[in-house]
Protein backbone atom coordinates (compact mmCIF):
# COMPACT_ATOMS: atom_id res chain seq x y z
CA UNK A 1 0.00 0.00 0.00
CA UNK A 2 2.89 2.41 0.73
CA UNK A 3 4.01 2.22 -2.90
CA UNK A 4 0.53 3.07 -4.12
CA UNK A 5 0.43 6.00 -1.74
CA UNK A 6 3.82 7.12 -3.05
CA UNK A 7 2.38 7.25 -6.56
CA UNK A 8 -0.68 9.08 -5.28
CA UNK A 9 1.49 11.62 -3.46
CA UNK A 10 3.42 12.21 -6.68
CA UNK A 11 0.18 12.83 -8.57
CA UNK A 12 -1.14 15.22 -5.91
CA UNK A 13 2.15 17.15 -5.88
CA UNK A 14 2.16 17.45 -9.65
CA UNK A 15 -1.47 18.57 -9.76
CA UNK A 16 -0.93 21.02 -6.89
CA UNK A 17 2.19 22.53 -8.43
CA UNK A 18 0.51 22.86 -11.84
CA UNK A 19 -2.46 24.63 -10.27
CA UNK A 20 -0.28 26.97 -8.22
CA UNK A 21 1.65 28.02 -11.32
CA UNK A 22 -1.54 28.94 -13.19
CA UNK A 23 -1.44 32.53 -12.03
CA UNK A 24 -5.07 32.68 -10.87
CA UNK A 25 -5.81 33.13 -7.19
CA UNK A 26 -8.54 30.49 -6.99
CA UNK A 27 -6.53 27.83 -8.74
CA UNK A 28 -3.52 28.75 -6.63
CA UNK A 29 -5.58 28.05 -3.49
CA UNK A 30 -6.77 24.70 -4.89
CA UNK A 31 -3.16 23.79 -5.54
CA UNK A 32 -2.13 24.78 -2.03
CA UNK A 33 -4.77 22.46 -0.50
CA UNK A 34 -3.67 19.57 -2.74
CA UNK A 35 -0.04 20.12 -1.80
CA UNK A 36 -0.90 20.08 1.94
CA UNK A 37 -2.74 16.79 1.51
CA UNK A 38 0.15 15.35 -0.44
CA UNK A 39 2.60 16.32 2.31
CA UNK A 40 0.46 14.69 4.99
CA UNK A 41 0.10 11.49 3.00
CA UNK A 42 3.85 11.41 2.37
CA UNK A 43 4.59 11.58 6.09
CA UNK A 44 1.96 8.92 6.71
CA UNK A 45 3.38 6.52 4.14
CA UNK A 46 6.99 7.15 5.18
CA UNK A 47 6.06 6.04 8.73
CA UNK A 48 4.82 2.70 7.29
CA UNK A 49 1.18 1.64 7.38
CA UNK A 50 -0.43 -0.85 9.74
CA UNK A 51 -3.93 -1.94 8.76
CA UNK A 52 -6.75 -1.25 11.24
CA UNK A 53 -4.64 -1.02 14.38
CA UNK A 54 -4.85 2.42 16.01
CA UNK A 55 -2.04 3.25 18.45
CA UNK A 56 -4.14 2.76 21.57
CA UNK A 57 -3.26 1.02 24.81
CA UNK A 58 -5.93 -1.36 26.13
CA UNK A 59 -7.44 -0.51 29.48
CA UNK A 60 -5.32 -1.76 32.38
CA UNK A 61 -2.28 -2.46 30.16
CA UNK A 62 0.96 -0.48 30.14
CA UNK A 63 1.73 -0.92 26.45
CA UNK A 64 -0.16 -1.74 23.23
CA UNK A 65 -1.07 -5.41 22.96
CA UNK A 66 0.41 -6.08 19.52
CA UNK A 67 1.82 -4.14 16.57
CA UNK A 68 -0.11 -0.92 16.18
CA UNK A 69 0.10 2.04 13.78
CA UNK A 70 3.15 4.25 14.08
CA UNK A 71 2.10 7.00 16.50
CA UNK A 72 4.85 9.44 15.74
CA UNK A 73 3.95 10.31 12.12
CA UNK A 74 0.33 10.55 13.15
CA UNK A 75 1.20 13.18 15.73
CA UNK A 76 3.24 15.03 13.13
CA UNK A 77 0.40 14.91 10.60
CA UNK A 78 -2.08 16.21 13.16
CA UNK A 79 0.11 19.23 13.66
CA UNK A 80 0.67 19.57 9.94
CA UNK A 81 -3.03 19.50 9.14
CA UNK A 82 -3.76 22.30 11.58
CA UNK A 83 -0.81 24.41 10.44
CA UNK A 84 -1.75 23.74 6.82
CA UNK A 85 -5.23 24.96 7.54
CA UNK A 86 -3.87 28.10 9.17
CA UNK A 87 -1.76 28.73 6.09
CA UNK A 88 -4.69 28.11 3.80
CA UNK A 89 -7.00 30.42 5.75
CA UNK A 90 -4.46 33.20 5.72
CA UNK A 91 -3.74 32.73 2.00
CA UNK A 92 -7.46 32.86 1.34
CA UNK A 93 -7.92 36.07 3.31
CA UNK A 94 -4.89 37.57 1.62
CA UNK A 95 -6.17 36.62 -1.83
CA UNK A 96 -9.48 38.15 -1.04
CA UNK A 97 -7.90 41.32 0.19
CA UNK A 98 -5.54 41.49 -2.78
CA UNK A 99 -8.44 41.12 -5.17
CA UNK A 100 -10.37 43.87 -3.44
CA UNK A 101 -7.40 46.22 -3.24
CA UNK A 102 -5.89 45.61 -6.65
CA UNK A 103 -8.99 44.78 -8.62
CA UNK A 104 -7.61 41.70 -10.26
CA UNK A 105 -7.40 38.00 -9.47
CA UNK A 106 -4.51 37.49 -11.88
CA UNK A 107 -1.39 37.12 -9.83
CA UNK A 108 0.97 38.39 -12.52
CA UNK A 109 -1.02 41.59 -12.76
CA UNK A 110 -0.32 42.33 -9.10
CA UNK A 111 2.72 44.54 -9.54
CA UNK A 112 2.27 47.00 -6.73
CA UNK A 113 5.52 46.10 -4.94
CA UNK A 114 7.57 45.55 -8.09
CA UNK A 115 6.01 47.72 -10.75
CA UNK A 116 6.55 46.93 -14.40
CA UNK A 117 9.16 49.36 -15.73
CA UNK A 118 7.37 51.80 -17.97
CA UNK A 119 8.66 51.73 -21.55
CA UNK A 120 9.32 55.49 -21.54
CA UNK A 121 12.99 56.32 -22.11
CA UNK A 122 13.51 58.07 -18.75
CA UNK A 123 12.03 55.24 -16.74
CA UNK A 124 13.96 52.70 -18.75
CA UNK A 125 17.19 54.52 -18.01
CA UNK A 126 16.26 54.56 -14.33
CA UNK A 127 15.93 50.82 -14.10
CA UNK A 128 18.82 49.98 -16.39
CA UNK A 129 21.31 52.09 -14.51
CA UNK A 130 22.57 49.31 -12.20
CA UNK A 131 23.82 47.34 -15.20
Amino acid sequence: MELILAALVGLLVAAGAYLMMSGYLVRFLFGLVLLSNAANLAIFAAGRLTYAAPPLIPEGALAPGGPVGNALPQALILTAIVIGFGLFAFALALSFRAYNALGTAEMNAMRHAEPVPAPTPTAAAETERPA
Binding site: E2, L5, A6, G10, V13, M21, A38, A42, R48, N70
Partner: peptide
Protein backbone atom coordinates in the same frame (compact mmCIF):
# COMPACT_ATOMS: atom_id res chain seq x y z
CA UNK B 1 4.93 19.74 -12.32
CA UNK B 2 5.28 16.19 -13.63
CA UNK B 3 9.03 16.20 -12.95
CA UNK B 4 8.44 17.45 -9.44
CA UNK B 5 5.62 14.98 -8.73
CA UNK B 6 7.58 12.07 -10.13
CA UNK B 7 10.60 13.13 -8.11
CA UNK B 8 8.60 13.24 -4.90
CA UNK B 9 7.10 9.81 -5.65
CA UNK B 10 10.45 8.22 -6.43
CA UNK B 11 12.04 9.83 -3.37
CA UNK B 12 9.24 8.46 -1.19
CA UNK B 13 9.73 4.99 -2.67
CA UNK B 14 13.43 5.27 -1.94
CA UNK B 15 12.63 6.24 1.64
CA UNK B 16 10.43 3.17 1.93
CA UNK B 17 13.33 1.01 0.84
CA UNK B 18 15.37 2.04 3.85
CA UNK B 19 15.05 0.91 7.43
CA UNK B 20 12.60 2.76 9.62
CA UNK B 21 14.10 3.73 12.93
CA UNK B 22 11.27 3.13 15.39
CA UNK B 23 13.14 4.08 18.56
CA UNK B 24 11.03 7.15 19.23
CA UNK B 25 7.78 5.35 18.56
CA UNK B 26 8.88 2.52 20.83
CA UNK B 27 9.72 5.03 23.54
CA UNK B 28 6.31 6.68 23.26
CA UNK B 29 4.52 3.31 23.23
Amino acid sequence: AAALGLGVAVALVAVLGGDLGRELTAYFE
